[in-house]
């Protein structure tokens, strides 16, 4: 069974009252990178995932989780 990476980045970012641009500035990437991660177009590296978790002050597994792929 294959899995894909789900995330609650948008929800957690909104909870912190941050815009995509503000979160991007905190972790040192472009707003577009945050946008594509939120929309599950781009899977971030472990380093970026940990930076996002640190910026939102949550454990990384609260942002990212594995879910079974739809067609399986």
């Amino acid at each position: 069974m294959t899995s894909e990476l789900a995330n609650r980045l948008k929800e957690l970012r909104a909870r912190e009252g941050l815009t995509q641009a503000e979160l991007a500035a905190r972790v040192g990437v472009t707003r577009k990178t945050i946008n594509t991660v939120e929309n599950r177009v781009f899977v971030p590296s472990t380093i970026l995932a940990l930076k996002l978790a640190a910026a939102l002050a949550v454990p990384v597994e609260e942002i990212f989780s594995l879910e079974p792929r739809g067609e399986d």
């Binding site: 991007a24 040192g28 990437v29 472009t30 594509t36 781009f42 971030p44 970026l48």
Partner: peptide, 11 residues
């Protein structure tokens, strides 16, 4: 530079 050439750019 490091922001413009971030992970998404490299990808």
């Amino acid at each position: 530079q490091s922001v413009i050439q971030d992970e998404l750019f490299c990808h």
